[in-house]
């Protein structure tokens, strides 16, 4: 029977050491628990549909008690990469990096070099925003037609990770109904940028990915 075969397959995966920490919360040893760990990336049309909104969340699974102490790192830049000609190479970047109690933003602008190594595009500064404190009203800034936010937010991701782990481990054969949201009651450090579509090139579609990059 198919199901038996599949459970066998899943057990093999579990034995081979696959540890599932969705979405990408704590997905790899080098980034787990530090400011470089991206948990989720979102890209959607804004309330004003002339704009696109990009969200990059880091440092997932923050309990309410741990959230006030969680901070962005001045040596870690968040870089949003935008490909607008379909070759999976970034044509534009939007960069965010903390200095003091503010987050500074650069771009959208062409990167100096594409790929895994970057410099901050200081000639393309687009704005800054005070980093919002835990428990206070979110501080937003509007500059150059763009909107900016940085600070703690509820983790928007939802998934019954616990049950999925049980399935992988062979102690369950399926999900429960209703399931249990493993990410309920946890927070992330969010960076939110709203950009006029006109600043993203003229293509009807774009490809987007986020990277954290650390100063060497």
């Amino acid at each position: 029977m198919k199901k038996t075969k599949m459970v066998l397959g899943l057990s093999l995966v579990a034995i081979s050491g696959l540890i599932f920490m969705a979405a990408d919360h704590a997905d790899a040893p080098a980034v787990t628990g530090n400011a470089s760990d991206i948990t989720d990336v979102y890209a959607f049309q804004g309330q004003d549909t002339n704009n696109m909104v990009f969200v990059v969340n880091t440092q997932g699974l923050l309990s309410p008690g741990a959230t006030a102490a969680a901070t962005f790192n001045e040596n870690v830049m968040t870089e949003l990469n935008i490909d607008n000609n379909g070759d999976n190479v970034e044509d534009l970047v939007i960069q965010a990096i903390k200095r003091g109690d503010k987050m500074y933003f650069f771009g959208p602008t062409a990167p100096g070099t594409t790929g895994a190594t970057s410099t901050v595009k200081t000639t393309a500064a687009s704005g800054s925003v005070a980093i919002s404190a835990y428990g206070s009203t979110p501080i937003t800034a509007t500059e150059n037609g763009m909107k900016f936010f940085a600070g703690p937010r509820d983790d928007p991701f939802f998934f019954d990770l616990g049950q999925f782990k049980s399935i992988l481990g062979g102690t369950a054969t399926g999900f429960n109904n209703p399931g249990t949201d493993t990410f309920a009651g946890t927070n992330v450090l969010a960076t939110v940028i709203e950009v006029p579509k006109s600043m993203l090139g003229t293509s009807a579609t774009i490809s987007v990915w986020a990277e954290t990059k650390k100063k060497i």
Binding site: H25, A116, S118
Partner: peptide
């Protein structure tokens, strides 16, 4: 503010849960 220096990729992500799965 100083923004100088070279920054090297630590994490990359787009679609949800790809690396993890």
């Amino acid at each position: 503010k100083k923004f100088s220096g070279t920054f090297v990729q630590q994490d990359q992500m787009a679609r949800p849960a790809i690396n993890t799965v």
